[in-house]
Design a protein around this nucleic acid. Structure first.
Lengths: 229, 229
DNA sequence: TTCATTCTGTTATAATTATAACATATGGGG
DNA sequence: CCCCATATGTTATAATTATAACAGAATGAA
């Protein structure tokens, strides 16, 4: 049983470990040290060992970690072997793209159903999942054990739909709408994909880079002027 | 001129501030205190004041912050007024969905061009942007000042295309492929959108929730048994 | 105008997170 | 079988990040 609280920073590194381990496994590497893994991920060996030690002792002194076994441990920690069930609400552009393109099963999830309010969309099938009417949502939730709702409705509807979902037993929301879902039941788990937030932080670093270059150029120019005198 | 290095945590909160301030502005709120803003975002007033103080003095003692002015300051810090130019490489499912749906201009960016390797896609137009052949990429980069590349190629191609972009002047990559881009030039700015990482960390918290509930149920059962004796 | 109240910017403190150090266990070579 | 090199798990230390405390400026009511 888990005892100590594991920090969110650690949790967010786990999927990266998983990805790298899958890659190593695919390329035939069967053992790896924290030092080597750290180099490949840009992390210190200390951090890697401490991250893993939150969950148990997965390595062997003098040998390192077994890639395949470690991969499976992390997959299990992340719940990939629990068969979580998801529904998708809002089959617009992004919702449809997710249904069409994102492989839920690759990550241990099942996309069990999708819902939309638009009669023109209801009844269409993508990747084996047929879109149902929002009218069926509550009945469906009552009759099926669903873990996660993928929220891809227009942002105007986001808050209301999120509340509806939480009030009817959904405990985790994968939020693709560009709004803060602080309102729903405080026990609800919310994970955001905020495209614009991501692009804007990128923008900050690009701007910083330009400023640094401009400052550098100005410095050179001053030196040039000083030399002329 | 910026002097002290601002932490990444602070930068990642800026877009959230921006979003909330836009929302407040839209609903007619013209002034706000750090206390009030903190409540709405789930942050402490201290943290908010310290975040802002990294960039200047935007508030007024005894009054608070002017919503509109603060919003513009943050937008400027994030580079929204610099007219950054982006290209998109790889017009598959997600690439096309971004072109179709994501409003670059809303965040101060211009999507100047898109590229794909598939002749069936080259020449098509989405949202005013016509897809060009990858053969034109290098010439285009040489002839145009581009700041950001949106990387939406299949993951097998990701590393190679990223390297190509970096070697030809691109200094920032908005990476939608499910690979770590640690390889490219170390000076390149990389911002990742890893759908699977996001879903997996959500999975961790869902699993944790289930474990806690199971532990709680077990505790209740033990108490029940103890009472029976 | 005066004064209590509000609320900032900043400094000080606490808490968290990452890094380094170390003691110990394992594997493999001679 | 013994010993060295390797590499873990853990404890100790450093660095970072968040929170709290505070001094002072502006507001608004009387």
């Amino acid at each position: 049983m888990k005892r100590i609280k594991v920090s969110n920073n650690v949790i967010r590194r786990l999927p990266r470990y998983l990805r790298k381990l899958d890659e190593l496994k695919a390329s035939g590497v069967s053992r790896i040290s924290s030092f080597n893994l750290g180099q490949q991920l840009g992390l210190t060996p200390s951090q890697i060992r401490q991250d893993f030690s939150c969950f148990g002792e997965f390595g062997q002194q003098g040998y390192g970690y077994n890639v395949s076994a470690l991969r499976d441990e992390i997959a299990s920690i992340l719940g990939m072997d629990r068969g979580f069930k998801a529904i998708l609400v809002g089959v617009g552009n992004i919702g449809h793209a997710l249904m069409d393109n994102f492989c839920f099963s690759e990550w241990g999830f099942t996309l069990a159903a999708a819902f939309d309010i638009d009669p023109a969309i209801v009844g269409t099938t993508t990747n084996g999942v047929t879109v149902r009417s929002m009218d069926e949502l509550l009945d469906y939730l009552a009759g099926n054990q669903i873990d996660v709702a993928v929220l891809t409705v227009p942002k105007e509807a986001a808050s209301a739909v999120a509340k509806l979902l939480c009030d009817n037993g959904i405990r985790a929301i994968w939020n693709f709408t560009n709004v803060e879902l602080t309102e729903p039941n405080s026990t609800t788990i919310v994970e955001n994909i905020h495209f614009s937030d991501s692009l804007l932080s990128l923008g900050y670093y690009v701007a910083e880079r330009y400023d640094e270059e401009a400052a550098h150029a100005a410095r050179l120019e001053r030196m040039e002027k000083a030399r002329e005198q």
